[in-house]
Amino acid sequence: MDVQRYISSGLIESYVVGLATDQEARELETAMAQSPEVKAAVGAAQLDMERYVQFFSIAPPESVKERIFQRLTTDGAESIVPAGGATDEAYSYPEEEVVKEKRMVGAVWQYIAAAAIIGLIASIYFNYNYRNTINEWENKYQALLFDQEKMVAQQGVHQTKMQEAEQMLERLRQSDLKMVRMYTASKTRPGLLATVYMIPRSEDAYLTVSNLPEPPADQQYQLWGIVNNKPVDAGVFDMGDATKGFQKVKYVPGAQLYAVTLEKKGGSPTPTLTAMYVAGRVGG
């Protein structure tokens, strides 16, 4: 048997204060019978507890002794019945006084406790409210902060767009601007229009789409500049940006023609002529 285990487990202390379960008590009693060390540890804890208990010693009302001895003389082998109020009236007066006094003290404490509890409840209530209000303001503040950030971001987007538009206008005002209108290249697809703006001085080119059908998901439009009958790739474009505004495309120096074909996604090295949608001549 591991003596140290019993001693450090807290079972001994629990046993002494009457906390051990029946099974635990039996186990410990067996251990006590086998080990003087365990028995000594139990005895020591018992002494501690007894000393503790004695601090709360109080002289009982004097009538009790009298009542006990009365019972002793009249007592045969009767069963034990707790004596209720069947005592001599004369002894109950001083006892009543003490009880009353104690009840008064008790009542005062009850009022104090009640006041404290009311105070506590009020405090909890106000704290709760206060916290709710704080939470509410916190949420509102976060929402405002979010809105503000969103607006700053939007403003940034608008500013960039504005600058682009201003730059675009500035370029459009330049005298050497060439506008290349590309019209329907096949009679089966009438009414199509896209335009390339060429700025030779800065070698910039912009594309805007007025009317082109939305390409299938796996295909993209590709712009070509044709120099001396040789197509030069000017980049693929998606419908979004090009239809809404001006999309920067590759400037093809010396191009006589611009054309748009529908190609596989990412573009082709040479144009698929059967899939030419629009084409236009570069003016003088």
């Binding site: 450090s8 487990s9 807290g10 001994i12 202390e13 629990s14 906390l19 503790y52």
Partner: peptide, 14 residues
């Protein structure tokens, strides 16, 4: 932990 707390309490009492 009840038993070990009880042990600590009694040790403190001691």
């Amino acid at each position: 932990t009840v038993k070990t707390r009880m042990r600590n309490a009694i040790i403190q009492l001691r």
